Amino acid sequence: MKLDLSGRSALVTGSTAGIGFAAAKALADCGAQVFVNGRDAARTAEAADRIGPHAEPVPGDIGTAEGCHAIHAATGPADILINNAGIFEPADFFDTDDEIWDRHWRINVMSAVRLSRAYAPAMVEKGWGRIVMLGSESAFNIPAEMIHYGVSKTADVAFARGLAKRLAGTGVTVNSVLPGPTLSDGLEDMLAGEVAKSGKPVAEVAADFVMVNRPTSIIRRAATVDEVANLIAYIASPLSSATTGASLRVDGGVWDSI
């Protein structure tokens, strides 16, 4: 089995670090021309340089309608859209004001809606395309400490399912990928204090965090960003042509369901 994306182009939002960077690199390694996206122009250019000649920086803020329009204008049509960019912020329900809810909705949900609306028509016209939403196991296993985040991820999964049905028979597939706890830059930042306090390696601290906060984990550790990117690369490839409207778990078994 060979994942060959030669001649394909892909936009990966939020791809200067973490899962997004790993996904962009995986797609580029498969031969795709990848548009790397981030809000900071210098950081976006640096990330594209690290990926190599198959990567082009496209800075822009996916959290606004104007930013999404500018990104689409800069790239033109793309064969693959990975709606990866997202935020999470642990906060008790009674401490999450409207602004926190609105920010999670704009970035985690509306960016995917706007960009999918922009890129899908050209995919349909071409008769081939891949749209992938980065959901989360939190879409089904709503975290009590981040209800606002869980709700936004449930919306991403629902959006992917609905859009897949809307694009039925076009050759364009739409799926969501559901990571569990993943050792991304965001998780590393969240655990930095405990790493400094304990002196343990970050992977060990992350494993402890998983077992305390997600005790249903079967792998009993945080996934790596590359492990998540591997699934994204497959679902973005021609080999996944019979998979659409699916929510695909790469959560280490955290979601306790068959």
Rank of each mutant, 00 (worst) to 15 (best):
Phe140Thr: 04
Pro53His: 05
Phe140Cys: 04
Phe88Asp: 06
Asp98Trp: 13
Val36Asp: 00
Gly38Ile: 05
Asp156Thr: 02
Leu134Pro: 12
Cys68Lys: 13
Arg114Ala: 13
Arg103Thr: 11
Ala112Thr: 00
Val34Gln: 05
Val151Gly: 01
Ile62His: 06
Phe140Tyr: 13
Gly150Asp: 11
Pro59Glu: 08
Thr154Gly: 15
Gly38Asn: 07
His72Leu: 03
Asp79Glu: 05
Ile107Ala: 10
Ala85Cys: 06
Ile100Gly: 01
Glu145Phe: 13
Ala85Lys: 03
Arg39Gly: 14
Asn83His: 05
Arg106Trp: 08
His104Glu: 00
Leu81Ile: 07
Pro57Glu: 04
Ala78Lys: 05
Val58Cys: 12
Ala158Met: 10
Leu115Ser: 04
Gln33Tyr: 01
Ala139Pro: 12
Asn83Ala: 03
Ala65Asp: 14
Asp102Trp: 13
Phe140His: 12
Asn83Pro: 10
Met133Tyr: 12
Ile100Asp: 01
Met110Glu: 15
Gly135Tyr: 03
His54Pro: 00
Thr96Tyr: 00
Thr96Val: 14
Glu66Met: 13
Gly52Glu: 09
Val157Trp: 01
Ile87Tyr: 00
Val36His: 01
Gly127Leu: 10
Arg106Phe: 02
Leu81Gly: 08
Ile142Asn: 11
Asn84Asp: 11
Ala122Ser: 15
Thr96Ala: 15
Glu46Gly: 09
Asn37Gly: 09
Ser136Glu: 11
Ser138Arg: 04
Gly150Ser: 10
Ala158Ile: 00
Ala85Gly: 05
Gly127Thr: 11
Gly135Ser: 15
Asn108Ser: 09
His104Cys: 02
Arg130Ser: 14
Ser138Lys: 03
Phe94Arg: 08
Ile107Pro: 01
Ile62Ala: 14
Phe93Trp: 10
Ser111His: 10
Ala65His: 07
Thr64Met: 14
Asp98Glu: 14
Pro57Asp: 05
Gly38Phe: 08
Ala45His: 03
Thr96Glu: 02
Asn83Lys: 03
Ile80Ala: 04
Pro90Arg: 12
Pro57Gly: 10
Ala118Trp: 02
Arg114Val: 01
Gly76Arg: 03
Leu115Tyr: 06
Arg117Met: 08
Gly135Met: 06
Arg114Cys: 05
His54Leu: 13
Ala144Cys: 00
Pro143Phe: 08
Leu134Tyr: 06
Pro53Phe: 00
Pro57Ile: 13
Val34Leu: 09
Ile51Thr: 11
Arg39Tyr: 03
Ile80Trp: 04
Ser138Glu: 15
Glu125Asn: 07
Ile100Ala: 12
Arg130Pro: 05
Ala41Arg: 15
Ser152Tyr: 08
Ser136Gly: 07
Val109Ile: 13
Gly129Lys: 10
Pro121Met: 06
Pro57Trp: 08
Gly60Asn: 11
Ile131Cys: 10
Glu46Arg: 06
Leu81Glu: 10
Trp128Ile: 09
Met123Cys: 04
Ala48Gln: 07
Phe35Leu: 10
His148Ser: 12
Lys153Cys: 10
Pro143Trp: 08
Ala65Pro: 01
Arg50Ser: 14
Ser111Thr: 04
Thr44Gly: 10
Ser152Lys: 07
Asn37Tyr: 04
Trp101Pro: 03
Tyr149Ile: 09
Phe88Thr: 02
Arg130Asn: 04
Gly86Ala: 14
Glu137His: 12
Asp97Cys: 05
Arg43Trp: 03
Ile62Arg: 09
Met110Cys: 01
